[in-house]
């Protein structure tokens, strides 16, 4: 009799959990994200709300980043490739530069095209960048302002120091989070490149179906 009761309780517990898993909804992360105005990598003025109806994946970085930004974009490239064409039509991958002075829309476009032509670069004024960073509760800092001796990093690249245009290139620390935003503009999950791609893709697919 006792065995039957235990078995019944276990069955009920497992059934409830399976039912919960089927309807597991990603929570809305209140206070993270929102509308913003910027310039996309095609040079168009854009409003974030214009992406409504699409699931949006947002990452921050800059093109002079040697390690983490190319790695993140490579990760997003593989992630995007795991979606089928129909799903891709409902997904926008946004790469927001924290160095808009150097990363002009055209420059961002050339950089992102290397990873995937569908990826969208987001640039603009410093004020616009600061606003985007702020609403996503992200952060960035120019390394030289943190007391970091950036001359050590670029000391042998004299070309950068001799050419005014190149001199604009700076080094930054920045947030590594990847934000998953639903079709109504609500942030639903914060991931990073350590998230298994299958798991991230499942979340994207889940938001597409909502």
């Amino acid at each position: 009799m006792l065995k039957k009761i235990v078995a019944y309780i276990l069955y009920t517990f497992i059934s409830i959990n399976m039912a919960y898993a089927d309807t597991d909804v990603l929570p809305i992360l209140s206070g993270v994200g929102g509308n913003f105005n910027a310039v996309d990598s095609d040079g168009n003025m854009v409003e974030f709300n214009s992406y409504f109806g699409n699931v949006v994946v947002i990452a921050f970085g800059y093109t002079n980043c040697a390690d983490i930004c190319p790695f993140t974009l490579g990760y997003l490239k593989k992630l995007y490739a795991q979606l089928n064409e129909e799903e891709q039509e409902h997904v926008k991958i946004l790469f927001v530069t924290v160095d808009p002075e150097y990363d002009t829309p055209a420059h961002l476009n050339d950089f992102l095209n290397y990873f995937n032509k569908d990826f969208i670069g987001i640039s603009g004024t410093k004020e616009q960048t600061d606003h985007i960073v702020s609403i996503y509760q992200a952060q960035y800092n120019e390394l030289s302002r943190e007391g970091m001796p950036t001359h050590n990093i670029r000391r042998i690249n004299t070309k950068l120091l001799e050419n005014d245009e190149e001199e604009k290139a700076k080094l930054f620390s920045h947030s590594v989070s990847i934000y998953l935003v639903d079709k109504e503009g609500f942030t639903r999950s914060i991931e990073f490149t350590g998230t298994p791609k299958d798991k991230f893709v499942e979340k994207i697919q889940q938001l597409i179906k909502e």
Binding site: I68, Q139, M148, N152, I156, S175
Partner: peptide, 19 residues
């Protein structure tokens, strides 16, 4: 090529490059 030895450190969700 020009090359230097660096480390990316992740602290509180921020990536920072260190020479």
């Amino acid at each position: 090529v020009d090359v230097m030895f660096h480390k990316t450190e992740i602290r509180s969700g921020m990536a920072k490059m260190v020479h």
